[in-house]
Amino acid sequence: MALNTPQITPTKKITVRAIGEELPRGDYQRCPQCDMLFSLPEINSHQSAYCPRCQAKIRDGRDWSLTRLAAMAFTMLLLMPFAWGEPLLHIWLLGIRIDANVMQGIWQMTKQGDAITGSMVFFCVIGAPLILVTSIAYLWFGNRLGMNLRPVLLMLERLKEWVMLDIYLVGIGVASIKVQDYAHIQAGVGLFSFVALVILTTVTLSHLNVEELWERFYPQRPATRRDEKLRVCLGCHFTGYPDQRGRCPRCHIPLRLRRRHSLQKCWAALLASIVLLLPANLLPISIIYLNGGRQEDTILSGIMSLASSNIAVAGIVFIASILVPFTKVIVMFTLLLSIHFKCQQGLRTRILLLRMVTWIGRWSMLDLFVISLTMSLINRDQILAFTMGPAAFYFGAAVILTILAVEWLDSRLLWDAHESGNARFDD
């Protein structure tokens, strides 16, 4: 018995066209964080690309023209004298008006014999932002004059995390709450300039795509075929072959399989920071003279006294001054041990922890910024005066060393310790 099946006739004509040209192939790229070699397709503007294995951002879609970056830099340069030299806060102490600005706080630190601690604050609040705007201006002028731009481009990517104007702005709020127990506070004209400078700096850093600047100024022929001998440069993120001198053909720094002496430098910085954190938390970090009496505060006791007036601000200072430094030390110690013992479990967790400490590390400088600003506000000789204690130097040095330890660690070593050939990683 035959089955009668109805015929289905399409209502619209289906047209099949042959592909007349070869589909576009992607360029081969190595991930600078996990060293995976993959094919990167062509990316349009405002599109980002991520590593298929570790999800690290390979290409950032946010990109401004150099002219727009230069305009932002010149605007920031105009704001800087007002943000640093004009009063941020006014207080009335014992019937006398006192003005506080950024430069005055750094000068008070240096004047009291601790120039190293003052230079830490100076670099993060004044030096690094000033280098940022002058570097962008150098790129703008240098591109037109045919100057060598490689050193500036190499420095810009590392400079971003040292620009800490946003953290200093939080420190202004913390210092205001600490001082309000002794005097009446009012915002100064410099505060508005400083807030504007923070906003412009944040926007500029978020749109400063150094890798795209490398592509514009020093374009290189990408690798179009897969080759395990391809290496990625950690300076400019170019994937290719080393030249005859073993250097990256684009930025001219040595092109090595792994960062040289990464573990040794990381261990040295980490152990030194552990040693410095002990006096930083045991010795007094601030000293207040009130009517001839002397009151010393460690980091913890200062947080407890701050909690009596504002528990939320005390929580912020606790996280930045105690929780973050010790968390960074514990995480980095764990990561280094996992590399030495070739741990194969929990790779995803370790990668996330490394990215976390990379982002939060700079916030530990908050305590030094609060001390710097408070020193310029309260300084009335023996009637009422505020000065920093010996722990300030140890704390600042420990924070900087932990930042350097994270920067010096080559994250690809975590993958080397893991089993080879993993296309995915999980716990």
Rank of each mutant, 00 (worst) to 15 (best):
I274H: 13
T5Y: 05
A268C: 11
D243P: 06
W64C: 11
A187M: 14
E161S: 10
V179A: 05
P24F: 06
Y168A: 09
P249K: 13
R260P: 07
R250Y: 03
I330V: 12
Q108I: 15
P219Y: 11
L368P: 05
L271H: 08
Q7W: 05
G113N: 14
L336V: 12
P219Q: 14
I136R: 02
K57P: 07
I177E: 02
Q220D: 14
I116N: 15
G105N: 01
L165V: 12
D60E: 10
D410A: 00
F194H: 10
C236R: 01
P249V: 14
E157K: 15
I126P: 13
M164P: 01
A269Q: 03
E42G: 06
T11E: 07
N4H: 07
P151S: 04
I330C: 12
R380V: 02
G85M: 04
N422F: 10
V189F: 14
G235T: 04
G105M: 01
G127A: 11
E161D: 13
I383L: 11
I303W: 10
V357I: 10
S372T: 07
V152Y: 01
I116Y: 11
I288W: 00
K229A: 14
L213V: 08
R97Y: 02
W92N: 02
L77Y: 03
L23E: 08
A269F: 04
R158W: 03
W140G: 13
T239F: 10
I287W: 04
I8R: 10
I116P: 12
I136S: 05
N143H: 15
A307T: 14
Y28V: 09
L234R: 11
A397M: 06
I167R: 03
K328W: 00
L154V: 05
G20I: 05
F74I: 09
F123S: 02
S364L: 00
M76H: 05
G85C: 04
H237A: 11
S321Y: 15
F333Q: 12
L335I: 09
F395W: 04
I185M: 15
G26A: 05
L169G: 06
Q55H: 07
F141S: 02
I136N: 02
I167F: 03
R68S: 02
Y241C: 12
V203H: 08
K328F: 00
K12G: 06
E296M: 15
L257W: 14
L278M: 14
W267V: 12
L40V: 09
L283Y: 04
A49D: 10
G20E: 06
V121I: 11
A423Q: 15
G421S: 04
V16F: 07
W267L: 14
L3D: 11
L373G: 02
K265T: 04
I14K: 09
A18E: 08
L197Y: 13
H261T: 09
I91E: 13
F38V: 09
G396S: 04
H184A: 07
T298L: 12
A73V: 07
A272N: 03
M365C: 04
L88D: 02
V125S: 14
D35Y: 05
G235Q: 02
W84N: 06
S338W: 14
I339E: 12
I330F: 15
A183H: 08
N291W: 15
G292A: 13
L353H: 09
Q345R: 13
K160I: 08
A2Q: 07
R97D: 02
T202P: 04
L352G: 12
R250W: 08
E22L: 06
K229F: 15
C31F: 00
N44T: 09
S364G: 13
I199Y: 09
L282W: 14
C54G: 00
P24D: 07
L78S: 13
F425G: 14
L347P: 04
M375T: 11
N281Q: 12
R68A: 01
L154I: 09
P284A: 15
T298D: 10
